[in-house]
Nucleic acid binder design. Structure first.
Length: 279
DNA sequence: AAGCCGCCCAACCGCCGCTCG
DNA sequence: TCGAGCGGCGGTTGGGCGGCT
């Protein structure tokens, strides 16, 4: 496979984007829509590689992006999703339409990892004080390491996190929620535990995806082709409806096995903690 | 006031998977 | 069928900034 080196072309500019560059990029996308990133530098005269243009657009210039503080609801949703999906930031970000994967990833690495570490330490100490050096303390340690220190692939996180609790039965190994089962369980669990807030989180974070940008730093109006728009709440709801329908018609499955609701695999420590917090 | 330190986040890097000729 | 090109993703880096001494 030919692997193109990142921005390996000569004369390619690196570093922070200037307002002028942003203006050029946004103007171009306004006319042509996002995509065809390979032709963007040539057509705009930007001394940036195509990847850099795409990243700048998706992480910063794209309309509907919210920067700044994450709400507690957003954080809880991220924790919940991370415990289920592992470090699949793009997948997690897809449930937070106003946030980019980069934002979620940065927020996790800079804020939430630390919070989780503190929470685990508290639990660890509580376990020690109440049971001595019990197995639960050992489990807490193990999960602490898995959750907070794992910077490897996301699957390892998801799978190791479950080692403190009985692993999900899956002969082919735990997989990221490319399966609707995982997503379904996730959303169901979220609804069960946070019946109103779970919905609110998603409603709050929705911007009308078809709303063009009226002022974007340089007062550029952007209109998008039909082919481009971020996931809307309707799409998320539709996804959930489809998942619900699939489950009702085929029975809930997990790891390729049919499973009744009360036979669902146990929640991870993090999820249990979220439930405690919500109670 | 100046230097140091730690934090934050935009951007970079490298790999993977898909598409298309 | 094969391989080049491209888009996407997750991990990492480093510059800027604010707080502290």
């Amino acid at each position: 496979m030919g692997r193109s080196l990142f921005c390996a072309e000569a004369g390619v500019r690196k570093g922070p984007w200037t307002p002028e560059e942003d203006f050029i990029l946004v103007s171009y996308i306004q006319r042509h829509g996002p995509g065809k990133w390979g032709s963007v530098p040539a057509n705009t005269g930007l001394m940036r590689c195509s990847k850099s243009c795409r990243l700048r657009w998706t992480n910063y210039l794209r309309p509907g992006i919210k920067h700044g503080n994450f709400t507690p609801q957003e954080e809880e949703l991220i924790i919940h999703l991370q415990s289920l999906l592992g470090n699949k930031w793009a997948a997690i970000a897809s449930y937070l339409p106003q946030r980019t994967d980069n934002d979620v990833k940065n927020h996790w690495n800079t804020h939430m990892k630390k919070k989780m570490m503190m929470m685990m330490m508290k639990r660890h100490q509580a376990a020690i004080s109440s049971h001595g050096a019990s197995s639960s303390a050992g489990n807490a340690c193990h999960e602490l390491a898995s959750t907070c220190c794992d910077t490897g692939n996301g699957n390892s996180n998801a799978s190791t996190a479950h080692s403190a609790t009985p692993p999900i039965s899956n002969p082919s190994g735990f997989k990221y929620a490319s399966s609707t089962e995982n997503i379904s369980r996730l959303l169901q669990g979220w609804r069960r535990r946070r019946p109103s807030q779970g919905q609110d989180v998603r409603r709050q974070s929705i911007t009308n995806p078809s709303t063009p940008v009226r002022s974007l730093g340089n007062q550029v109006e952007v209109e998008f082709p039909e082919s481009y728009r971020p996931a809307s709440i309707e799409e998320l709801e539709s996804l959930q409806s489809r998942i619900d329908w699939e489950e009702s018609s085929s029975g809930a499955t997990f790891g390729g096995q049919k499973m009744l609701d009360d036979q669902l695999p146990p929640l991870t420590m993090l999820e249990s903690w979220l439930a405690d917090e919500a109670a």
